[in-house]
């Protein structure tokens, strides 16, 4: 009943890149990595009212080996950090990370001896989601943005080029510590 029935000659042409991106984004399996308060909001997102099932993502995998998205929901302590990295390493490529909440993104209000000041010290992060805790709508927005990113992810030689370009841009960019007069 969808577009597939209206195609003039019954087939579509596209690139492998687009097809792979489309397939990947539509079958994300998040690993449960609930840590603190944010985890409760993550569960709420999966439950009745917000219903993550609408995006085909309601099945949280208990085992990292069957998951490709890690939602780090909550504060990561120094004691938890090695565990987190191990879980990340156990996930098969390609994999993505959403850092949910200010604690996971930057340490948030807990700037102290116990908390890792941003989970990006341990694992590469694709989406930073601010909020304390972020509302379920915000989590869904982050997930949709990630879907979009996955959809347009380059493959093969394009990927290499994109990485090189990103590296070049990063080298040229002004480090935050040298930015002046932009405090706002």
């Amino acid at each position: 009943m969808g577009i597939e029935e209206k195609l003039p000659s019954g087939f579509l042409l596209t690139s492998v890149e687009t097809a792979a991106g489309w397939v990947r984004k539509a079958s994300l399996f998040p690993a449960t990595f609930g840590l603190a308060c944010c985890a409760i909001e993550m569960m709420t997102t999966g439950a009745g009212r917000y219903d993550l099932a609408r995006f085909g993502m309601e099945v949280f995998r208990g085992s990292p080996r069957q998951a490709d998205l890690m939602i780090v929901a909550g504060r990561v302590s120094q004691k938890m950090a090695p565990v987190l990295r191990q879980v990340y390493d156990q996930m098969a490529n390609p994999k993505w990370v959403i850092s949910m909440g200010v604690c996971a993104s930057s340490g948030g209000m807990f700037n102290n001896y116990a908390i890792v000041q941003g989970v990006d010290h341990i694992v590469p992060v694709d989406i930073y989601l601010p909020g304390c805790p972020p509302r379920p709508e915000m989590l869904m927005d982050a997930i949709l943005k990630l879907h979009d990113k996955i959809q347009h992810e380059p493959l093969g030689v394009n990927k290499r080029r994109a990485q090189e370009l990103a590296e070049e841009l990063a080298l040229e960019a002004v480090p935050t510590s040298e930015m002046r007069g932009l405090l706002r």
Binding site: K79, M80, F110
Partner: peptide, 23 residues
Amino acid sequence: IGYLHTGIEKNMEFRNWVQGTTF
């Protein structure tokens, strides 16, 4: 246990009494 130790009690010693509720 201790995998979620946040040091909240210590952090509160550097904030005023009202800010304590936020912690």
